[in-house]
Write a protein that binds this DNA or RNA. Structure first.
Lengths: 126, 126
DNA sequence: TTCACTGTATCAATATGTTAATACAGTAAT
DNA sequence: ATTACTGTATTAACATATTGATACAGTGAA
């Protein structure tokens, strides 16, 4: 079960519902959950994490709005079949990304420096 | 004067003090303010923007902590003596950049794809 | 000193965000 | 219909972030 892939840090400034969202996104991005695979129920996950069901419900609701998962009362939630493909995801980001690059260019930052920033981010990320 | 380079959007979810910080950073990054050039005083800027002096003070204080500007009571604030090198500029962008990368990660985009997006931008640019 | 400007500190009001308590409602198997 | 699960909605408690009112303190020139 993917339950043990999910954990939250109560001392983090990142809200618990946001940590849950990221957990699920990463799980789906890594294909640990494929299309139509069931997620743990709201109550199952909330009692596993020892938090209020509403907190899990908020995470699931927002993921549903983002079309990452889908769900129905009485049936639970599952990985959506309408997940955007890798290409779609990049297209979704590209506008925002180009704005960012333009600002960087405006400041005189080279493409090499930008790539270096990416590498740095992932080196520091554990 | 750089006063007219500074504006805030009161309907934005981005706090006013944060908008001021970004304004100043961009002004310095674009060399509209060079080393030791004076910034508007806290009260001057606050009355110009019609906000409380404390809001401007917070922006300036944080910029000072980030070594982007310097200041003293009775003297005002000025652009820090440390010329914003390429590295400095990158630091200024880094917060924003990291948020972007985080979002990309959340979408399951690999570092390689991100670098590819940068290359693509510059290939198409010229 | 006095004055007119600087920035600083403290506290309160307000707004926003997060989580929990609790009750309600849908689904499906028995 | 009963049971045992699902998700949903409402409201309140709590925490945090943002901004403002106000008073205090430093600097330098007249």
């Amino acid at each position: 079960m993917i339950l043990k892939e999910i954990s939250v840090d109560f001392t983090s400034p990142v809200p618990v519902y946001e940590q849950i969202k990221r957990n699920i996104k990463h799980i789906i991005a890594k294909d640990l959950l494929k299309t139509n695979d069931p997620l743990p129920s709201i109550r199952e996950l909330s009692s596993f994490l020892k938090i209020n069901p509403n907190t899990v419900a908020r995470a699931f609701r927002e993921l549903q709005q983002e079309k990452i998962i889908d769900g129905r009362p009485g049936k639970g939630f599952w990985a959506s079949s309408k997940k955007p493909s890798g290409k779609k995801k990049i297209e979704m980001l590209e506008d925002e990304f180009n704005k960012f690059i333009e600002k960087a260019v405006d400041m005189g930052i080279s493409p090499e420096s930008m790539k270096e920033m990416i590498s740095k981010y992932f080196r520091e990320e554990k």
